[in-house]
Computed example of a mutant assay.
Amino acid sequence: MRTNGKGKAGATASYEKALEWVVGGVAFFFVVVLLGYLFGLGAWVDGQPPRFAIMVENVEQIGNVYQMQVVVTNEGDVTASDVRLRAVLHQDVGPDEARELRFDYLPQRSQRRGAFVFERDPRSGVTVDLSVTSYVEP
């Protein structure tokens, strides 16, 4: 019995060629979806500068000092770096107690935690002012 030379080898080559087209089509689809997503992100994001919200999470006495844990949130659409926070305890008696805290990197729409360390209890008879004093857009 004679064959025309294509036989099994021809069927395998045809199958491999079809598989290549299917894989290529799926990859092309994902690349187009990814590019569309990135383009949409760039087109519809307002590009609001960093906006910060600071919240006191907890105050804990450790030895002779008090740690005031805070959460800072960047509610803007732009990443901030070298973010500096300042906390000032205004007291009725004695001098104010001021502390600073620095975060290297605060991406858009994210949170970071840190702690201010005070000699006096920030929960008792004092006013605490929290503020962001500076940041840099990388």
Rank of each mutant, 00 (worst) to 15 (best):
T79D: 10
T79E: 09
A80Q: 02
S81F: 02
D82Y: 07
D82R: 11
D82N: 11
D82M: 06
V83A: 04
R84K: 11
R84S: 02
R84I: 00
L85D: 04
R86I: 01
R86Q: 09
A87Q: 02
V88W: 00
V88K: 06
V88I: 07
L89E: 05
L89Y: 02
H90L: 07
H90N: 01
H90E: 01
H90M: 07
Q91T: 06
D92I: 04
D92H: 09
V93Q: 08
V93M: 02
V93A: 07
V93S: 03
V93R: 06
G94Q: 04
D96E: 08
E97C: 02
A98S: 14
A98Y: 00
R99N: 05
E100V: 13
E100W: 10
L101V: 03
R102T: 13
R102I: 11
R102D: 05
F103G: 13
D104K: 14
D104R: 14
D104P: 07
Y105V: 13
Y105F: 15
L106C: 07
L106E: 09
P107D: 07
P107Y: 13
R109G: 01
S110A: 05
S110E: 15
Q111R: 15
Q111E: 13
R112V: 12
R112A: 14
R112Q: 11
R113E: 12
G114W: 07
G114D: 04
G114M: 13
A115Q: 12
A115R: 14
A115T: 12
F116R: 10
F116L: 08
V117M: 08
F118V: 07
E119Q: 15
D121M: 06
P122Y: 05
P122E: 06
R123H: 01
R123L: 15
S124Y: 13
G125E: 12
G125Q: 07
V126L: 06
T127C: 01
T127S: 12
